[in-house]
Design a protein around this nucleic acid. Structure first.
Lengths: 94, 94
DNA sequence: AAGGTTTATATCATAAATGTTATAAGGAGT
DNA sequence: ACTCCTTATAACATTTATGATATAAACCTT
């Protein structure tokens, strides 16, 4: 796989074509995207976020690259980015 | 720790006092509660849910008892209980 | 209280996520 | 081209969640 999502999101507003190609993969990497967006909202680099979380830049890159984080890690990301993590299990619409 | 949440939720409507004592611990075990509720909504026992997920009853009990599941496991629970898993990282209200 | 059903606990091997360090690669600006 | 900043990848040790099995405890009905 290995798709540079962080860079992609940073390009988001500069490159319309890139944006479209990206939305196709949307569902699959929805979580990674949310994490990247939360970080960018907070105006942090991977390195800065890592520091706030007490981990390394490479660990952040790994997660943003698509590797599923644990809930504990997700919570730490939420706190470090000034975000609120919401999880729900609702009756499905099917 | 070791608090019998599943049983607690099953008592929910039969024992008002028990319910109140329970709500105090609410936030801490919110996720476990959601999972138990999803299972009960689907009318499943731990054993039945485990079967649908291809795992064991003890694994379900462990999770419902408070051990943090992985996202992969959460997704499997959602599917097996006919629920929809929603995760979001929103800008905090602080 | 006895038997059947359901849930909780314990133990241990395996799998997955993380922490860590180092290095490569991409992008922006001079 | 060359820096500088940032993100991606790789390898390995450690931690955490899972799978599996067995057993205990709680609940319910008669």
């Amino acid at each position: 796989m290995s798709i540079p999502f962080s860079r992609a999101l940073e390009k988001w507003n500069r490159d319309e074509e890139f944006r479209k190609a990206h939305e196709a993969l949307d569902e699959e990497f929805a979580l990674a995207r949310m994490i990247i967006e939360a970080r960018l909202r907070a105006g942090l680099t991977q390195e800065e976020l890592a520091e706030r979380m007490g981990t390394s830049q490479s660990a952040i890159a790994r997660i943003e690259g698509g590797h599923r984080p644990s809930l504990k890690t997700l919570e730490r990301i939420a706190e470090a980015t000034g975000s609120r993590l919401k999880i729900s299990l609702e009756p499905a619409s099917d």
